[in-house]
């Protein structure tokens, strides 16, 4: 039994690669994965999304616990990373005045656990980044959203809290995360996807195609560019992780 994973990311068409505000982190020893979609209406969302996914996979907690038990600690640690990464004093007025409102992101955390020969998984999520468990053909389940029409412009989000001049100790109320558990069967795939790709996958069901193409960054870029240009996929930062059990 072997877990393989592949990762693909591209910026919104027309933007630079460095403009991408999505983040993906993993920790192979603990079999932990996290993706986040930083909200572009706020600034330093890329920094916040990175801080959140890093803190998610490096935290000492198990995702098989209730996320209410660890989300506060996770956000406190991520906030420290986010806050220290920004050189508040040197920001010009327009960045300072906007950055004080904080940054926002979605989050999906996923952990696997080998239990008595079975590979169980547990996931928690805030917002509209999704986990899709595909077991072949039309057999799939998804969470926290289950159909393309559930994607809207007002997902739940993880907030960094206020920026400078508020202190790093500024307290943030953690959002309520939803949870999902399952068992990986051999030859099944779990996709972690930010909203535009997740919606597209649920709408068009092209799981087999992306499972094959995700080995080639060039072909994935071509596919997604074509889908965006034909208006089947929203032009957005795109992140897709494919985890496959051999």
């Amino acid at each position: 039994m072997r877990l393989n994973w592949r990762f693909f990311q591209m910026s919104k068409l027309g933007n630079k690669e460095s403009d991408c505000e999505d983040s993906f982190s993993f920790r192979s020893r603990e079999m932990k994965f996290a993706i986040a979609d930083g909200v572009s209406a706020s600034i330093f969302s890329d920094v916040w999304a990175r801080a959140i996914t890093d803190s998610t996979v490096t935290g000492k907690y198990s995702f098989f616990e209730n996320p209410d038990n660890f989300l506060n600690d996770l956000i406190v640690r991520a906030r420290q990373k986010w806050y220290r990464k920004i050189d508040w004093e040197k920001l010009p007025w327009f960045l300072k005045n906007k950055a004080v409102s904080g940054s926002y992101t979605t989050l999906v955390g996923l952990q696997f656990q080998n239990t008595g020969g079975e590979l169980k998984y547990s996931s928690f999520a805030v917002g509209d980044s999704v986990l899709i468990h595909w077991e072949g053909a039309d057999d799939y389940s998804s969470y926290p959203l289950t159909s393309p029409d559930q994607f809207d412009n007002t997902p739940k989000l993880v907030w960094s809290g206020k920026g400078h001049p508020m202190p790093v100790e500024f307290k943030v109320v953690p959002p309520k995360a939803s949870t999902y558990r399952g068992t990986m069967s051999r030859n099944s795939t779990i996709f972690l996807a930010t909203d535009a790709v997740g919606k597209w996958l649920l709408e068009y069901g092209r799981y087999a195609e992306v499972s094959r193409l995700i080995n080639s960054s060039f072909e994935m870029t071509e596919l997604f560019t074509r889908e965006i240009n034909s208006k089947r996929m929203r032009n957005d930062d795109l992140t897709l992780v494919s985890i496959f059990l051999e």
Partner: peptide
């Protein structure tokens, strides 16, 4: 005035162009 999650009002200054 910024209200923190514990309900405390904190006064903050900012530059307005």
């Amino acid at each position: 005035t910024i209200t923190d999650p514990e309900g405390n009002d904190v006064e903050s200054e900012f530059e307005f162009p």
